[in-house]
Lab assay of single mutants.
Amino acid sequence: SSGGSSILDRAVIEHNLLSASKLYNNITFEELGALLEIPAAKAEKIASQMITEGRMNGFIDQIDGIVHFETR
């Protein structure tokens, strides 16, 4: 797709992000992006959206560029 990722790509990214949230206590956007094979800024945006929508527990430290995952 030309304008970003398809629905399937997005679903795969979100699935992998949720998997990462179970493996890590926290991770930088750079590391997360590398893990998900997407730019760091996109990793931040998707993580932020999932947390806001209540689909993933955690919070974002924008100063240090880190996602902190919280286990249920």
Rank of each mutant, 00 (worst) to 15 (best):
A43L: 10
A41H: 11
G65H: 09
P39C: 05
D9T: 06
V12R: 13
N25K: 15
R55Q: 05
K42G: 07
E30L: 09
G58H: 01
E31D: 10
S21M: 08
L35Q: 04
E37H: 15
H68P: 01
S1C: 11
I27R: 04
I60V: 09
S19W: 14
A20Q: 06
F69S: 01
L36Y: 04
T28S: 12
N16Q: 11
L35E: 02
A20H: 06
A43I: 12
L32I: 03
D9P: 08
E30F: 09
D9L: 06
G58F: 03
I51W: 03
N25C: 11
I13V: 08
I63A: 12
F59T: 07
A20Y: 15
D9W: 05
M56P: 01
I51C: 03
I27S: 02
R10Y: 13
S2E: 14
L23P: 02
K22E: 06
T52S: 14
S19E: 14
P39V: 05
P39E: 07
D9I: 06
I27G: 00
A40Q: 06
G3D: 13
S6F: 07
S48Q: 13
A11G: 08
I27V: 07
I7E: 12
Q62E: 11
R72L: 11
I51N: 01
T52R: 14
R55S: 05
F59G: 03
K42V: 15
M56N: 01
H68V: 09
F29T: 03
E30V: 12
D61K: 05
T28G: 06
I13A: 05
V12G: 08
Y24H: 05
E70H: 14
T52E: 14
A34L: 12
A41F: 09
I38F: 01
I27T: 03
A11L: 12
I7R: 10
I60R: 01
I51H: 01
N16E: 08
G65W: 03
N26K: 15
E70W: 14
A47N: 00
L32M: 03
E53C: 07
A41P: 06
A40W: 10
G65S: 06
G65Y: 04
T52V: 11
R10A: 08
T71P: 12
N25M: 12
E14F: 05
P39M: 04
V67M: 09
Q49Y: 06
E14R: 04
S19C: 14
S2T: 14
T28D: 03
D9F: 04
G54F: 04
L17Y: 01
F29P: 01
R55D: 02
I13N: 04
S48Y: 12
I60P: 00
A47S: 05
N25W: 08
V67N: 01
S48A: 13
S6Q: 11
F59H: 10
S48T: 11
T52Y: 10
A34Y: 11
D61S: 10
R10P: 09
Q49M: 08
F69V: 02
R72W: 13
E53G: 06
V67D: 00
V12D: 08
G33I: 03
R55V: 06
A43N: 00
S21K: 03
G65N: 07
Q62Y: 15
G4C: 11
E44N: 07
G3L: 12
L23W: 07
Y24S: 03
I38A: 01
E44H: 13
F59A: 05
A41N: 09
N26W: 15
M50D: 00
A41M: 08
A43V: 12
G33N: 01
E30T: 09
N16I: 15
S21D: 02
F29L: 11
I63N: 09
A40N: 03
A41Y: 11
D61T: 07
A43M: 04
G4A: 12
R55E: 03
I66N: 04
M50V: 02
N57M: 13
Q49W: 06
E53D: 09
P39Q: 05
